[in-house]
């Protein structure tokens, strides 16, 4: 079988990038940038996840069918997030779940 064997150097490079991005995400969190803090943290996390998927999970070297599977997974995740949150964020209510109040305040 002729599977693509990724050179060790690339794995080490990916590893170094992931560690670097972890340090960046910790450092950035200490600056008060308002809502931008959240967006930067998410952007870094998405970047790290993409690198892991492409290299460690070999998707970069995989067949088109694997790409379709992975893409469809994240498409449905987007549907889940966007539809649910666009509903919640455009309503003026979000009731607290009840039933645990007595546990909180003994």
């Amino acid at each position: 079988m002729a599977h693509h064997v990724v050179p060790q150097k690339i794995y080490l490079l990916v590893f170094a990038t992931l560690i670097l991005l972890t340090l960046v995400t910790v450092d950035v969190a200490f600056y008060d940038l308002g809502l931008l803090n959240l967006y930067i943290a998410l952007a870094i996390a998405v970047t790290k996840a993409t690198i892991v998927i492409l290299y460690f999970m070999h998707v970069k070297y995989s067949s088109r069918l694997v790409w379709v599977f992975v893409g469809s997974g994240f498409f449905w995740l987007a549907v889940l997030l966007v539809l649910t949150l666009s509903d919640f964020f455009t309503r003026g209510w979000s009731p607290l779940p009840s039933g645990w109040t007595s546990m909180v305040m003994p």
Binding site: T25, A45, V52, F56, M57
Partner: peptide, 23 residues
């Protein structure tokens, strides 16, 4: 594949749980 997936979940959990408003 499974191991890396679990790693990715943590990549999102870490900033979302530990790093809110550290400034």
């Amino acid at each position: 594949l499974y191991w890396h997936f679990v790693d990715i979940v943590w990549i999102f959990l870490f900033p979302l749980l530990y790093l809110i408003s550290r400034s």
